[in-house]
């Protein structure tokens, strides 16, 4: 029965569902977990990096996930004023991120100002939505978590999914174990937490949702948006050493001696 409706993106099923979109969401739930937490003085994005093979070239930079893989997580920057974490198909994400970068730079060219965060998110979601409606195309299999700052609304955190829906969040997640990550975040989230506390919360949630109990810097990625003492906004992708230090602080690091064995 469902065969009649799920092969095309543009057709509602009798129950009022769009199967292709749901399948895209399903694809994302196999991706590594990504979470984002909004603090009063910044935002943290954390993502699981799935290491599929030892032979795979590990990028020295934490920004890039291995190319061409399925269900990888990564932090990339759509524009200079925002960063985002990706859960889903990397190849689809690359297309969308390129689109976002172009949109943001075009806005800068027109208005000589950074694009407000929500506008950029909406632009991207409009594109995603198009692929759920126009015939013969498959939706993008990616969810994004965006972190950004603009003068009007200060720090902002957004989540978007393949259907083209988006929303602003205080803390949210995407990818595998989204349900449990969300409930953990709901439990742990404190209003007015600092960026440092948010980072701690992020590793704790990741350690519980990921398959392995002990984390290491190869398996996760961290990025933060914050404000320096003199009011400047910065975005930073963490180095492996910084992640290790954070993990040790929260006693979640993989034992070095155990690794040797």
């Amino acid at each position: 029965m469902s065969r009649r409706y799920d092969s095309r993106t543009t057709i509602f099923s009798p129950e009022g569902r769009l199967y292709q979109v749901e399948y895209a969401l399903e694809a994302i739930s196999h991706a590594g977990t990504a979470i984002g937490i909004l603090a009063k003085d910044g935002i943290v994005l954390a993502a699981e990096r799935k290491v599929t093979s030892k032979l795979l070239e590990q990028d020295t930079k934490p920004t890039r996930s291995p190319p061409g893989g399925f269900h990888k997580c990564k932090s990339a920057d759509p524009a200079s004023n925002m960063i985002c974490a990706v859960a889903g198909m990397t190849s689809d994400a690359n297309i969308l991120i390129n689109f976002a970068r172009q949109s943001a730079q075009r806005y800068l060219l027109t208005y000589n100002e950074d694009i407000p965060c929500e506008q950029l998110v909406r632009k991207l979601c409009d594109l995603k939505q198009g692929y759920t409606q126009h015939g013969g195309l498959r939706p993008f299999g990616v969810s994004f978590i965006y972190a950004g700052w603009d003068p009007q609304r200060q720090f902002q955190l957004y989540l978007s999914n393949p259907s083209g829906n988006y929303g602003g969040w205080k803390a949210t997640s995407a990818g595998a174990n989204k349900a449990s990550a969300d409930s953990l975040l709901k439990q742990d989230y404190k209003e007015d937490c600092t960026l440092k506390e948010a980072c701690g919360m992020a590793v704790k949630v990741l350690s519980k949702t990921m398959d392995s109990t002990k984390l290491s810097s190869e398996k996760i990625e961290f990025a933060t948006v914050g404000q320096t003492a003199d009011g400047k906004i910065y975005q930073r992708l963490w180095s492996a050493d910084e992640i290790t230090t954070l993990l040790k602080e929260h006693d979640l690091a993989k034992d070095a001696s155990a690794e040797d064995k």
Partner: peptide, 10 residues
């Protein structure tokens, strides 16, 4: 500025 920003991101 547009072209160089895109270059740097890419």
């Amino acid at each position: 500025r547009y072209k160089v920003n895109m270059y740097r991101l890419r």
